[in-house]
């Protein structure tokens, strides 16, 4: 086993432990952990058994196999970035809808409260509001 293979092996093991720990602390959703485990598995696989990398490099006409590795890594990261962009777009949309719904419900609640206690005048109205102020 060459020195670089040992380095790759150690790095892979550290990554696996890190991901496992993140799941255990519930910081990483299992859905993503699978993807990252798969990534580490590929790194590990190529560290121990580099024949496919050489064959692939030859097939697509890349002279230096490490460049094939960089290409694959870049494509992978690009895909992840795109995936997260989509995810952020969706979350932004959902957050917006939640905020709008909250504004409408907040108004309805206020309307009900003022109906329930019509004696209270404008001076009181800002009272219950102050509780939900974020800062």
């Amino acid at each position: 086993m060459s020195r670089i293979q040992i380095v790759a092996l150690v790095v892979s093991i550290i990554l696996i432990l890190l991901i496992f720990q993140l799941i255990r602390r519930r910081k990483l959703k299992e859905q993503y952990s699978l993807l990252w485990f798969l990534t580490v598995a590929v790194i590990l696989g190529l560290a121990l058994w580099d024949a496919p990398l050489f064959r692939l490099s030859h097939a697509i006409g890349v002279a230096i196999p490490s460049n094939t590795l960089f290409l694959l890594a870049l494509m992978f990261l690009f895909g992840m970035a795109l995936h997260f962009s989509l995810l952020v777009s969706r979350l932004t949309d959902q957050t917006k809808m939640l905020a709008q719904k909250l504004a409408l419900l907040d108004r309805d609640l206020r309307a009900q409260q003022s109906k329930a206690a019509p004696a209270k005048s404008t001076g009181e109205q800002s009272g219950p509001e102050s509780g939900d102020d974020p800062d």
Partner: peptide, 29 residues
């Protein structure tokens, strides 16, 4: 928001800044 309440108009309060488009959309909703 206090000025709106004081003036006795309807008030829709977005919990954080959404930008003019989403603000208007809330009004349309």
């Amino acid at each position: 928001p206090d000025i709106a309440l004081g003036a006795g108009v309807e008030l829709l309060r977005l919990p954080f800044n959404l930008g003019i488009g989403s603000t208007m959309q809330t009004g349309f909703q």
